[in-house]
Amino acid sequence: MSNLFVNDDDDDDVQQRYQPTTTSIKEETEEEPEIVIKKEYGNDIQLEYQQFEDNAEEDEGEDDHDPIIDSIPLVMNTVSSKQRHSLHILQYPGRPKNRPLNNGAYSGSIKLESQYLEMTVPAEQQFFNKNKIDKWGEDITEQKLSGVLDKLESGAFAGKLINDGNERKVVLIPIDSSAQLRTSFKYIDNSDNANHQMLKKEYAKPESEVKNVTILQSAAKNSTQNQDGFAHTLGDSLKSIKKFDEEKWKYLNWRNNKNDPIITNLKNELENGSNHIELSTNTQFEDYIDKLINN
């Protein structure tokens, strides 16, 4: 059976006892469906979709009224090679979790430098206003979802309670980042851009002579400074957008099949993984807080 994913606020290697938030998981019923992608760069990329299930874990916090009845060893597993695999949480806000994904072809692409992920998913045909196709031109069967991959600052983990009859353990798997995927209506933008280009061409012709003059001027101005004495360059945000535009997409595969050997392997690896370290706390609470505040 599958399992739960907990956003624990843990430091990477420190498993502290002070966990006031784990309790919050219990009520979290409206959590979106989550997708775990496992990706390998190069040729072979797999994606796995898993329905999120509510399966709260016991709080091993220090609530006094809550006596400890059983303790379960904690194990931390990571993907075997960071270069080949990384784990991410993909969120699809606005979509109820009990609605299954549409059937059809899924694919993904990523811009690594910009940490930007784009998914292509089959479009919802049910509520689609077919008349609009005339306006937007093409046959729209797929939809683009995209979002920024956010590094999880406090360190988030996927957890799984494994119940092997006699052996029980909780596996923690560090998550690299999370992304909220939102629809980007590329086809509208594309048609807009096309219109724009057309308009531009129509207007541009008579002005071509004037333009030469302006170029000369701006070239002369470039070396001079404004009154503050600071040359103006693109803002930070524009710089990163420029970088984003220049970067090439890398394509990712979608692996959905539960019996796919690569998925099962990876799953297995994560469950009973190589670095089978049982976690215990050495760090004192005070040190933890100090570390948190002072670094």
């Binding site: 006031p20 938030t21 919050s24 806000p93 606005g94 956010d150 406090s154 988030a156 807080i289």
Partner: peptide, 25 residues
């Protein structure tokens, strides 16, 4: 920044992973 980190450690759920639907429940 340290206060922000501390909040996350004290059980604040970051806005980046937060579902918009639950924000004002």
């Amino acid at each position: 920044l340290p206060i922000k980190k501390l909040c996350l450690a004290l059980g604040c759920e970051s806005i980046y992973a937060l579902d918009s639907a639950t924000l004002h429940t």
